[in-house]
Each structure stands twice: as structure tokens, then as C-alpha cells.
Amino acid sequence: MTIGKKLWALIIIKLALIFLLLRLFFFPNVLQERYDTDEERAEAVRNALTK
């Protein structure tokens, strides 16, 4: 395997791990997932920051 092929393989495996595994299953955007509108998100943050 040439060094170029090794590096392409490494890049593809890494990007797949980052975007298909980590992003989808481990790193949800908490506010985006839990609330539908920006107003709700703002209120959630207000409650969190002023409790």
C-alpha cells in the first residue's frame, strides 16, 4: 500500500468515525433537540442561568 493510499484510508475512516459515529450517536445539539423554537431555547437558558 503506498503512503498516499494509506493516508486516504486514514482520512476516510476518521471522517466516518467523526461524522457518522460521534456526531450522530454521541454529540446531539442539546438545545436543538430538546426545544423547537429559539424562544424556547432562550427561556431554557434563562432558567438554567438564573436558577
Binding site: 482520512i11 476518521k14 471522517l15 467523526i18 460521534l22 456526531r23 454521541f26 454529540f27 446531539p28 445539539n29 442539546v30 438545545l31 436543538q32 431555547r41 432562550a42 437558558v45 438554567a48 442561568l49
Partner: peptide
């Protein structure tokens, strides 16, 4: 390359109050 993108994921998941603020 792209290892920094994970930092941005962490903002949205672990540091959501900060990200919004």
C-alpha cells in the same frame, strides 16, 4: 484534519448554555 471539528460538537452537547450565551 477535522480533529478540531469535535471541539465544535462538544460546544453543542456539553456546553449548550455557553454556546447559546
Amino acid at each position: 484534519v477535522a480533529t478540531g471539528i469535535i471541539l465544535e460538537f462538544e460546544f453543542g452537547t456539553n456546553w449548550s448554555n455557553y454556546s447559546w450565551f
